[in-house]
């Protein structure tokens, strides 16, 4: 019994180790030394000194210096977050892929072991382990990542971060640390103090997290569904009801077209040929000339589609009526 199990373990080792080591090396290139965490990070001690300098500048009403310090603090923090986030993206992709490979490898190993083990008790234990492993993997995927792919999560995080970054950068460029007035328009410009900027920076950091991306995806989906429902309601309610005359015309056309369609796709070849010739002529009159090799069903569908389109655009009804009358 031990010999086959040892073989399976060895096989798993052979497949597993080179695969994983290979994956780690292909996920991201080695970062340049100037992007090393120790260089790009913004130590808390330096941050405190900068903030104190900012407060001193504000108290001494040196707003130009305060603005310089504000921008410097915010941009250094953004750079720090950016550097950390880049590594987080790689780690997220690698760790999820690694978990999947580990789980798949273990499942393959257990499945192989079940087939070679003869004792039924051991088979049962292995089968139970396999079920437990599969359940755990599904649970992690479901509860931590809500069954979203890594790519969709990263895509959402990037989009949210870009939006917030754009907001921060534009506010830093346009707003001073104290309220000002636009020299051209004389409009009041609100202050964008370091404390206000810090709120945005904090949001920027959290926009690059998995929970934030999950909420954002759910919100976007919900908003899209609500917008679609509202759009449909508005479209339906914007329909102009037919006049009595239009309804009468539609009823007459419907009564005339039904037997025409039945003949066109019916069993009688003579009636079918005549009906198809008329449908073809009507479509041509409507400036919808059919292809020479169009089938009976194609011709019937094309005319039906035109007729049903008058539900939205009732002005097309008169053209259809004229064409039907002309090709009698």
């Amino acid at each position: 019994m031990s010999s086959p199990l040892r073989s399976v373990r060895f096989l798993a080792f052979l497949v597993f180790v080179p695969t994983l080591t290979g994956c780690f090396n292909t996920m991201a290139p080695t970062p340049p030394k100037i992007l090393a965490p120790a260089i790009t990070s913004y130590p808390a001690s330096v941050y405190s000194v900068d903030v104190n300098a900012y407060r001193v500048a504000i108290n001494s009403k040196d707003y130009t210096q305060a603005r310089v310090l504000r921008d410097q603090i915010v941009y250094r923090t953004l750079a720090d977050i950016e550097s950390t986030y880049g590594r987080f993206e790689v780690q997220l992709t690698t760790s999820r892929a690694t978990e999947s490979v580990l789980a798949d490898t273990a499942q393959l190993g257990i499945t192989a072991a079940i087939t070679v083990v003869s004792a039924s008790d051991v088979k049962d234990i292995l089968a139970a382990s396999l079920s437990g492993l599969q359940g755990t993997q599904l649970s992690i995927d479901k509860n931590f990542f809500r069954e979203k792919t890594t790519e969709s999560l990263i895509s959402q995080m990037r989009a949210d971060r870009k939006n917030l970054e754009a907001q921060i950068v534009s506010r830093l460029a346009a707003q001073d640390v104290i309220p000002t007035t636009d020299p051209t328009t004389k409009a009041n410009i609100a202050a964008y103090s370091l404390d206000a900027a810090w709120i945005d920076v904090t949001q920027y950091y959290y926009a690059g997290t998995v929970p934030s991306a999950l909420v954002s995806i759910a919100t976007t989906t919900g908003n899209n569904a609500t917008a679609a429902a509202t759009n449909l309601t508005n479209t339906v309610n914007s329909l102009v009801p037919p006049t009595a005359e239009q309804l009468k015309t539609a009823t007459q056309l419907s009564d005339e077209l039904l037997p025409l369609f039945n003949d066109a796709i019916g069993p009688d070849p003579t009636k079918s040929a005549a009906a198809l010739k008329r449908i073809r002529a009507v479509l041509t009159d409507l400036k919808l000339p059919p292809a020479t090799n169009a089938s009976a069903n194609d011709l019937v569908s094309a005319l039906k589609l035109y007729f049903s389109s008058t539900d939205i655009d009732k002005t097309k009804l008169a053209a259809l009526q004229a064409a039907i009358e002309k090709e009698k």
Binding site: L232, N237, S308
Partner: peptide, 22 residues
């Protein structure tokens, strides 16, 4: 979906029209 902003007669006409053209 059918409009909910129509009068009784207009709603009847609209539904009849849809029956005929479709």
């Amino acid at each position: 979906p059918a409009p909910g902003n129509l009068s009784l007669s207009d709603l009847a006409n609209e539904l009849s029209y849809q029956e005929q053209v479709n």
